[in-house]
Nucleic acid binder design. Structure first.
Length: 108
DNA sequence: AAATTGACGGTTA
DNA sequence: GTAACCGCCAATT
């Protein structure tokens, strides 16, 4: 059988990880990529989110970039995080120092 | 087939 | 601490 596109194998993996993000926590695209086993696929994670259907109940609003900022053209993500108790810095970036999910602790 | 783009990360200046 | 550049992978034009 022909090798499946990277999407077919990477996307579902990303969805599983994002769904495992605890309440009131945030994770960077690179963090999700690393848990997925592809630390360099940070971009694909973003593409996965954009392609992520709402049917999966995917808390993509808990996924932010390493700048602590949110996705372009999606300002409501910030509101959703605030609603979960996440604190934003003055420049509009999430306080990664406190809300970044301890992914390295789970890698064992 | 080649070049460009994209919800990014990390390092260097 | 902030700014800029390079590097990564896949999809699209």
């Amino acid at each position: 059988m022909p090798d499946k596109s990277t999407r077919e194998e990477f996307f579902p993996e990303v969805y599983e990880i994002v769904k495992q993000i605890p309440f009131g926590k945030v994770l960077t695209y690179g963090g999700v990529a690393r848990l997925a086993g592809r630390p360099q696929y940070s971009r694909m994670v973003g593409q996965a989110m954009f392609n992520a259907p709402a049917d999966l109940h995917l808390p993509c609003h808990r996924v932010v970039n390493h700048k602590g900022g949110i996705a372009p053209n999606w300002p409501e993500q910030k509101e959703l995080l605030i609603e979960e108790g996440v604190t934003f810095k003055k420049n509009g970036c999430v306080d990664m120092k406190k809300h970044r999910w301890n992914t390295e602790l789970l890698l064992e």
